[in-house]
């Protein structure tokens, strides 16, 4: 496996300032690093990768890495990526998005990208909070937990992102945590290879906001929690729903093959051109 220093030499932009902007212990850097390892293991050409993000702490990931990088507006990474993918189907398009970015302001785009089954890999960095703006509750903040805009406890019920995207039609859904780095690499690898819309939900930690206000300890404590609550799908499948309460099932949750959007559009082009050529005087 590629070492950290090789990773830095090969994939980082050498004119960017390091250390990066994320807080000590923040899981975003860990997820980014393991995403790069997955890309390295697949031996993809850097020129063929487009890395797209929205706004938030997560959204700052692309600027550091030496791909075609696009840092868009809050919640909109997926429609930007959709246009790019259609224009350049040969590109591997990866999207990095936070839980707020993906499921609040960008929720509509997320479900429609799932439904369309366009070949984009979306990694959702789920830290249960709006990190960048200082810790307001997000659509995944657990019921009862605190945030700067719900200091007495969240009265809204959270989304289960993996279930949400499954219901919306994603053809590949994987979930893991920033503790389970090997599983993370493995799932991202498979997600990239999957032909169709793939979502990787990564449970991660924001020690600075969510951790602090909910007294979850530091990054180390939060990683220990991830280790405890995660349960692999192969084991979870054999367990009763009651035993699974409070657990987070990890692994590849959904993997199926359905017609991909760009490929289907190529068929439309062919059909439209045949139609045009068959029409009398239809060369216009």
């Amino acid at each position: 496996m590629i070492s950290n220093s090789q990773l830095v030499n090969k994939y980082f932009r050498h004119n960017k300032k390091f250390p990066h902007i994320w807080c000590p212990g923040c899981g975003i850097g860990t997820i980014l690093g393991n995403m790069l390892r997955a890309i390295d293991a697949l031996a993809l050409d850097k020129n063929d990768i487009a890395f797209v993000s929205g706004i938030g702490c997560t959204g700052r990931a692309p600027v550091y890495v030496d791909f075609n990088t696009l840092h868009t507006t809050h919640g909109r990474a997926l429609p930007f990526a959709t246009g790019l993918k259609l224009a350049r189907p040969e590109l591997k398009v990866l999207v990095a998005t936070g839980d707020g970015d993906a499921t609040a302001i960008g929720g509509n785009h997320l479900i429609h990208a799932c439904r369309r089954n366009i070949d984009i890999t979306t990694i959702i960095f789920n830290n249960y909070i709006y990190g960048m703006t200082g810790g307001q509750y997000s659509p995944t903040t657990p019921h009862g937990d605190k945030a700067s805009t719900c200091k007495l406890g969240n009265i809204e019920r959270p989304f289960n992102i993996s279930q949400l995207v499954e219901a919306a039609g994603a053809t590949f859904v994987g979930r893991t945590t920033s503790y389970h780095t090997l599983q993370l690499q493995n799932i991202i690898k498979k997600a990239i290879l999957h032909k169709g819309f793939s979502v990787v939900e990564v449970i991660t930690h924001c020690p600075t906001t969510y951790g602090r206000i909910n007294k979850k300890g530091n990054a180390v404590d939060m990683l220990k929690w991830q280790k405890e609550v995660a349960i692999d799908k192969s084991r979870a499948d054999k367990m009763e729903p009651k035993e699974l309460e409070g657990k987070i099932v990890t692994g590849i949750l959904i993997e199926k093959q359905l017609p991909e959007f760009c490929e289907q559009y190529d068929n439309i082009i062919e059909a439209a051109q045949n139609l045009k050529n068959s029409k009398p005087g239809g060369s216009k």
Binding site: M1, S3, N4, S5, Q6, L7, V8, N9, F12, F18, P19, H20, W22, P24, G25, C26, G27, I28, G29, T30, G33, N34, R37, S178, Y179, T181, L182, A219, L223
Partner: peptide
């Protein structure tokens, strides 16, 4: 086992298996 390397959020730790004396600088930041 490289777990420290894989979990470090800051790419700040490096583990090289086959250190072979002074030549083993290759992987380092140049």
């Amino acid at each position: 086992c490289h777990m420290c390397e894989l979990r470090c959020p800051d790419f700040a730790i490096n583990v090289e298996e086959h250190a072979t004396g002074p030549d083993s600088q290759k992987g380092e930041l140049q």
